[in-house]
Simulated scan of single mutants.
Amino acid sequence: MVQHDLSSNGGERTSAVRTCVGCRQRVLAAELLRVVASEQEPSGFAVVPDPRRRLPGRGAWLHPTPECLSLAVRRRAFGRALRVAGQPDTTALDQLVGSTEQ
């Protein structure tokens, strides 16, 4: 189900609202980075960024900050949000966001 922010001018739909898997805040989708799970043969799955929002598969949304990334990894939110088994590899996100935790 798509959630939209209802503006005060007649209830028109303006833009999509998504929840960050790290901090759990609901914000406009334009402020968040979409990530998807990509299958890797030996190790399972990797979480890869989807800045153009065009990659196939189930997506999750994340603030592009080291704090939200570390919260999501610590809470194991990517596995639940992307519906993959185990702990997916977040190396690509670490490089993009600039985080040193994993």
Rank of each mutant, 00 (worst) to 15 (best):
A92K: 06
P64E: 00
G79R: 05
A29M: 10
R26I: 01
L32C: 04
R53E: 09
Q102G: 08
S70H: 12
T65K: 05
P88Q: 04
C23E: 00
T14I: 09
T14N: 00
P64A: 12
E31L: 09
V2L: 14
C68R: 00
G22N: 03
S70L: 06
L28A: 15
L82T: 03
V36Q: 12
M1D: 14
Q95V: 13
Q95K: 09
R80D: 08
G44V: 06
V73R: 07
E67Q: 14
R83A: 15
L93E: 06
R53G: 13
Q102M: 14
E41T: 10
L28Y: 12
S70Y: 02
A60L: 04
R83V: 14
F45W: 15
P64S: 07
Q102L: 09
L71P: 00
V97R: 06
A30K: 00
P42G: 12
E12M: 03
V27A: 08
R52V: 12
N9H: 07
S7K: 05
R54W: 04
V27L: 08
R52Q: 12
R18L: 04
L96K: 02
E67T: 09
C23F: 00
V21A: 05
E101H: 10
E101Y: 11
R58W: 11
V2S: 10
T90H: 08
A16F: 02
R18V: 11
C23M: 01
E67N: 10
L32H: 04
P42I: 02
A29H: 00
M1K: 10
A37G: 06
G57W: 00
H4M: 04
R18W: 07
A77V: 02
R83E: 15
D89C: 09
A92M: 13
L82S: 09
G44Y: 13
R83P: 14
T91I: 02
L62E: 01
R54S: 15
A37C: 01
W61M: 02
G10A: 12
A29W: 02
E12K: 14
E31T: 11
D94K: 08
N9K: 14
R13F: 10
F45Q: 07
F45D: 10
P56D: 09
C68Q: 00
L82H: 04
Q3Y: 15
T100C: 14
A72D: 08
W61C: 06
A16W: 04
V97M: 06
G59R: 01
G11P: 04
